[in-house]
């Protein structure tokens, strides 16, 4: 059997693979949003801009500093995480006591500053970023070719996602995080420096976004515009999954990537809207989201 509903199997599997790649990015980004939201009660609108920054910095590092892919994969998230610390210290920390809507507006402003700034300096045209030689080419499975880089993206994202899940749910550090999320005042009264923990949480979330950006660089044209619609799709993912559970974010992100990929095969016109349509359906049948706890 090499056709399903009249679609050649390799094409189907190819799109499935692409869907998983996109889903990995959704998972990384919505995971970061969820971690930040848990601790700061802020929806980080700047998340897409930070993702773009991750890709742009790895391109810049390659072109101007000769820093290659592998070192970027480590250095760029650290650098963007440091920028996250600056954002948290100079901007976010002043609004924790206000309505969370202000957090959305403030980070929206940050997203505009970053996005507009990059467009002003680098223009809007896409730049190529080549796949590192170790991951070039494809594996021949007999019935289809599996591009190595796509496999790497999926494996790397899932590893980071599950490591994050493990860190939060199973370790001592994670217990501090969970405690700080649940009752920050009491947690600080036990001697834990909650303000620093909040700052590092934001830095970690931004670093995750940048990591996704570096991973994405070789799969797309790197440009300041690459994130302009990403954040909204990720918001829809978050609405669908709900932000109550770490594992929920990961699964929802991956799942929606796959759905998007399959839509490309069967009804390509709807592929850019399918995530939103799924959101509409979820809102109708399960308003709190698939993994949501809040009303």
């Amino acid at each position: 059997m090499n056709e399903i509903f009249g679609i050649p199997l390799p094409a189907l599997l190819g799109q499935l693979m692409l869907g998983l790649v996109n889903g990995s990015f959704y998972a990384l980004l919505s995971l970061g949003l969820a971690v930040i939201f848990g601790m700061l009660h802020i929806i980080n609108f700047a998340h897409g801009a930070l993702y773009m920054m991750g890709a742009m910095f790895s391109w810049l590092a390659m072109v101007y500093l000769g820093i290659g892919y592998w070192r970027s994969l480590l250095l760029v998230p650290l650098f963007v995480g440091a920028i996250g610390i600056v954002i948290e210290r100079f901007l976010l920390q002043w609004i924790y006591k206000l309505d969370p809507l202000y957090g959305l507006l403030l980070t929206f402003g940050v997203a505009l500053i970053i996005g507009g700034g990059f467009r002003y300096v680098f223009g809007s045209s896409g730049q190529p970023y080549s796949i590192p030689p170790e991951l070039g080419g494809a594996v021949d499975l007999g019935f289809m070719f599996l591009p190595k880089y796509r496999m790497w993206v999926i494996v790397a994202s899932l590893t980071i996602c599950f490591a994050t899940w493990f860190m939060i749910e199973k370790t001592r550090l994670g217990a501090y995080l969970r405690a700080g999320t649940e009752n920050p005042g009491l947690t600080q009264a036990f001697g834990i420096n909650v303000p620093v923990m909040v700052m590092l949480t934001y830095a970690f979330g931004t670093a995750l976004a940048a990591f996704a950006g570096v991973l994405a660089a070789p799969t797309t044209q790197v440009s300041p515009l690459m994130s302009s619609n990403m954040i909204i799709t990720v918001f829809a993912v978050v609405v669908i999954g709900g932000m109550g559970s770490i594992m929920g974010s990961i699964i929802t992100g991956l799942g929606l990537g796959v759905i998007e990929g399959l839509t490309k095969v069967f009804y390509a016109q709807a592929s850019s809207t399918v995530v939103f349509i799924v959101m509409v359906i979820v809102l109708m049948v399960r308003p709190a989201g698939l993994f949501g706890k809040e009303k």
């Binding site: 217990a175 501090y176 969970r178 405690a179 999320t181 649940e182 009752n183 947690t187």
Partner: peptide
Amino acid sequence: RGIYSSLTTEENLLLPP
């Protein structure tokens, strides 16, 4: 009492540094 619901009993016990 401030027992954390997202932590197990042992995690609660071990939480304060």
